[in-house]
Amino acid sequence: EALLLQRRRVTVRKADAGGLGISIKGGRENKMPILISKIFKGLAADQTEALFVGDAILSVNGEDLSSATHDEAVQVLKKTGKEVVLEVKYMKD
């Protein structure tokens, strides 16, 4: 459990079709971090076996998301290339 509370760096390699394969919720306007709300089976994020629903995305390719709005986070995630480095931390409810 202590492991979950540490920052983790996960590299996601996207397939030619399909994006990261995650849905996010939260954002500055909700006074919440950007959280992974869904991981789609078989897509890139799922294949890492290292990302979990409830993980907060702290940064994407080094771009800090700690004070991002939901829309800003969506845009940052959309413009990523084939390889995406996510810094995440599991957030307890």
Rank of each mutant, 00 (worst) to 15 (best):
T69H: 04
R9T: 15
E87M: 07
D55P: 00
S59A: 12
S37C: 12
T11Y: 07
G18C: 08
L58Y: 07
R8N: 01
D64W: 03
G26A: 03
H70D: 04
A68H: 10
I34N: 03
G18W: 08
K92N: 15
H70K: 09
F40M: 13
L51V: 06
D71I: 07
S66G: 09
R8I: 01
E49P: 06
R13L: 13
D93K: 05
F52S: 09
L65Q: 02
A2C: 12
S66E: 10
G21S: 03
K14D: 10
S67E: 12
D64G: 06
M32V: 12
S37P: 00
V53Q: 06
L65A: 00
A45S: 07
S66I: 07
R9F: 14
G62M: 03
S67Q: 10
D46C: 08
A17Y: 12
H70P: 05
I57F: 01
T69Q: 04
G19S: 15
V74G: 05
I24S: 01
L51Y: 02
S59F: 08
A45N: 06
N61Y: 02
A15L: 14
A56G: 06
I57M: 03
L20G: 02
I34C: 05
R9Y: 14
E63D: 09
I24L: 10
A17T: 14
S23W: 10
G26N: 02
I22S: 00
E1C: 07
A45I: 07
Q47W: 06
I34Y: 01
S66N: 09
G27R: 04
K92V: 11
A45R: 04
N61R: 00
K92L: 15
L4E: 11
T11P: 05
G18S: 11
T69M: 05
R7Q: 14
G42S: 08
M32S: 15
K38W: 07
V10H: 00
T48M: 05
I34E: 03
E72K: 10
R8D: 01
V60D: 04
L65P: 02
M91D: 10
V10K: 02
G18H: 14
T80S: 15
D71C: 08
T69Y: 06
D64P: 08
F40Q: 14
V84I: 14
E49C: 14
I57L: 09
G26P: 00
A17P: 13
L5F: 07
T48G: 08
F52Q: 11
R13Y: 11
K38R: 13
L43M: 11
K14Q: 09
F52Y: 14
L20P: 02
M32D: 06
R8L: 00
V85F: 07
G21H: 03
V53E: 10
S67F: 12
D55K: 03
M32G: 15
R7P: 12
S66R: 14
G54M: 02
A2F: 15
K25H: 15
L58W: 04
V53S: 04
S59Q: 09
S59P: 02
N61G: 07
G18Q: 15
R7T: 14
D71W: 11
V53N: 02
E63W: 13
R13V: 15
K38T: 09
G18P: 09
G26Q: 00
D16S: 13
L4Q: 10
Y90I: 05
H70A: 10
I24Q: 01
K25M: 12
L4T: 09
S37M: 06
G54A: 02
V12K: 03
D64S: 11
A68C: 13
G62V: 04
A56T: 07
I39D: 03
I36V: 08
D93Y: 09
N61A: 04
V10F: 00
G26V: 00
S37E: 14
S59C: 12
V53C: 07
A50T: 08
L65I: 15
E1S: 09
M32N: 04
D93R: 07
G62S: 07
L65K: 02
E83D: 15
A56D: 02
L51D: 01
E87S: 05
L86M: 15
S59V: 06
A50K: 14
I22R: 01
G42V: 08
F52A: 08
G26T: 01
T48W: 01
L20R: 00
S23N: 13
M91Q: 12
G27W: 02
S37R: 07
I57D: 01
K92D: 11
E72T: 08
R8W: 00
V53Y: 02
L4P: 08
V88R: 01
R9L: 14
Y90C: 13
L51Q: 03
A68E: 03
K25F: 13
G26R: 00
T69P: 03
L43V: 05
G18F: 11
G54V: 01
R8G: 01
T48P: 06
I22N: 00
I57G: 01
S59W: 04
I39E: 04
F40P: 08
T69S: 14
A2V: 15
I24D: 04
A56L: 05
F40N: 12
I57V: 08
V12D: 03
V10G: 03
G54Q: 03
E63K: 14
F40H: 15
I57C: 02
E49L: 08
T11L: 10
L20T: 03
D55M: 01
K92P: 15
V60L: 05
D16P: 14
K92C: 12
S37W: 06
V12L: 10
A15E: 12
V60S: 03
A2D: 15
A50N: 14
V88G: 02
D16K: 13
F52K: 12
S59H: 04
K89I: 11
S59T: 09
K25L: 14
S66T: 15
L35C: 08
L3C: 07
L4N: 15
V12W: 04
K89Q: 11
Y90G: 09
F40C: 14
S67H: 13
I39Q: 03
F52L: 12
R9K: 14
A15Q: 15
A17Q: 13
Q47V: 09
A15T: 12
R7M: 13
K25N: 09
